[in-house]
Design a protein around this nucleic acid. Structure first.
Length: 424
RNA sequence: GCGGAUGUAGCUCAAUGGCAGAGCACUUGACUGUGGCUCAAGUGGUUGUGGGUUCGAGCCCCAUCAUCCGCCCCA
């Protein structure tokens, strides 16, 4: 059988996958809202200019979904949210109550090669605090991330948030005599270290223009896990994380750089420690020039993002997902025969008016078929309204887990159904 | 953009170059007012696609498409 295929890198959300997506969304919402963050969203399509200015044209042209609309304008399926956020903030820069705390969970598209943990269409949690530049604000946002990890069952033994500070690293680079224009190269050099063999990396560092002395000095810096003590920012950050109750998730790591240019202070990334996914679960940092490209006055902010794909795999592999009900309705009203069809419908309606989620079999069918349906849907109760019950004003309520059943009067029915449904 | 692997039933996978199979799922029955468990029977295939080698190809060769894994990149 030939089917029309899906677009490369997209996913279909069957009810099971939709339940997972909504589960993550729910945990994201709970973590965000418990710290007072407001939900917002931007457009899903934007002009390409919005990204070209900030992210660099190469990246946008090669790795985004861009096309001409019927009016001839180049539009892009959004690859990230930050530029839209910047524009939205700039438009109301003087009216907003600072600090602004905003979060979002929505779809994004990137034209990349799909592989484990990476699709071309994905959902991403974005959360930012704007208009305040203290280490304590950084700590709060990291605490949101940690709260989320805890809420989905990822304990500090399983997930770690690695923290570093760009300013600290830059002063270390300066001390080694590394010129400011080399910083970007050095960042990618550091990022690449874990992926290369030590000897090769040593050579590579020289190719990047470091002297042997500088390289060895850099290696010392990268191995110094007490380096944070030299940074007042990091000391304050860790003190705040401590009282926020999430210090157990945090590790200082001078190797965390987050390649991008625009981070200026705290940077962090969360990883799952034991599983097969090597990619970061989430990551972010502090930036100082959010509104520079969209016409506002500079505003400092701190934010992070988390895609739904990696966290989904991590939770699945760790066995941390709860069992999602297949159907929101735990009760099936069966249909005995043609003459009782509408009475079953009426019975279902009556139960719904009592606030119960109820399905009714929508046609006359053999009872085994109807019970099999209820079973496959993992429903908790099946009701039978046959000729005998109809005459006596009763309904049979069957508990599908235990197999027990009883005929009950219409007056006692709702209570009985509630009782069966509420059993674990 | 580069490299590696894999495409066989709805799903997961078998099958020395020689009759295309199993498990699960599905349908029916054992069971005419009741699901799960068990048993029995049954449906289901252009072996991704196009060429080639061969008496004979799921298997070998070439091309192509797709998927997966990794590299690059990762806002």
């Amino acid at each position: 059988m030939s089917r029309i295929k899906t677009v490369k890198g997209t996913r279909e959300f069957y009810p099971e996958e939709m339940a997972l997506r909504n589960y993550v969304y729910g945990k994201v919402r709970a973590a965000s809202q418990s710290f007072g963050y407001q939900e917002y969203d931007g457009p899903f399509i934007e002009t390409i200019d919005l990204y070209a200015a900030k992210s660099g044209e190469e990246l946008v042209k090669k790795q985004s979904f861009t096309f001409q609309d019927r009016g001839g304008e180049s539009v892009t399926l959004r690859p990230e949210l930050t530029p839209s956020l910047a524009r939205m903030i700039a438009a109301r820069q003087n009216e907003l109550a600072y600090p602004v705390r905003w979060w979002s969970f929505g779809p994004f598209w990137r034209y990349e090669q799909p592989q484990k943990g990476r699709t071309r269409e994905f959902f991403q949690w974005n959360i930012d605090i704007l208009g305040v530049a203290t280490p304590e604000a950084d700590a709060e946002l990291i605490a949101v991330a940690a709260s989320f990890l805890r809420s989905v069952g990822l304990s500090p033994e399983r997930a770690v948030i690695y923290v570093n500070n760009r300013r600290l690293m830059e002063s270390e680079f300066d001390a080694l005599g590394i010129l400011p224009e080399k910083r970007l190269d050095i960042s990618s050099l550091i990022d690449r270290r874990s992926k290369m063999e030590p000897a090769k990396w040593d050579d590579y560092a020289l190719e990047m223009g470091l002297s042997a002395t500088q390289r060895d000095g850099l290696k010392e810096v990268l191995a110094n896990y007490d380096l944070w003590q030299k940074s007042e920012e990091l000391s304050r950050l860790f003190a705040a994380l401590d009282v926020l109750g999430v210090r157990d998730y945090i590790k200082f790591d001078p190797n965390i750089m987050r390649g991008l240019l625009y981070y200026t202070g705290t940077v962090f990334e969360a990883f799952e420690t034991s599983g097969s996914v090597k990619r970061a679960i989430l990551g972010g940092g502090r930036y100082d020039n959010l509104l520079a490209d969209v016409g506002g006055t500079p505003l400092s902010g701190m934010g992070f993002a988390m895609g739904d794909v990696v966290i989904g795999i991590v939770l699945q592999e760790a066995g941390l997902l709860p069992e999602f009900p297949l159907t929101p309705a735990p009760v099936l009203v069966t249909v005995f025969d043609e003459s009782l069809l509408l009475k079953s419908f009426a019975l279902a309606a009556e139960l719904r008016r009592e606030g119960l989620n109820v399905m009714v079999y929508p046609e006359v069918a053999k009872l085994p078929r109807q019970f099999k349906f209820a079973d496959k849907m993992k429903m908790k109760a099946a009701l039978v309204l046959g000729p005998d019950e109809d005459t006596k004003g009763q309904v049979v309520v069957k508990n599908l887990s235990s197999g027990e059943q009883a005929a009950v009067s219409r007056e006692a029915l709702v209570e009985m159904v509630r009782k069966v449904v509420q059993e674990p």
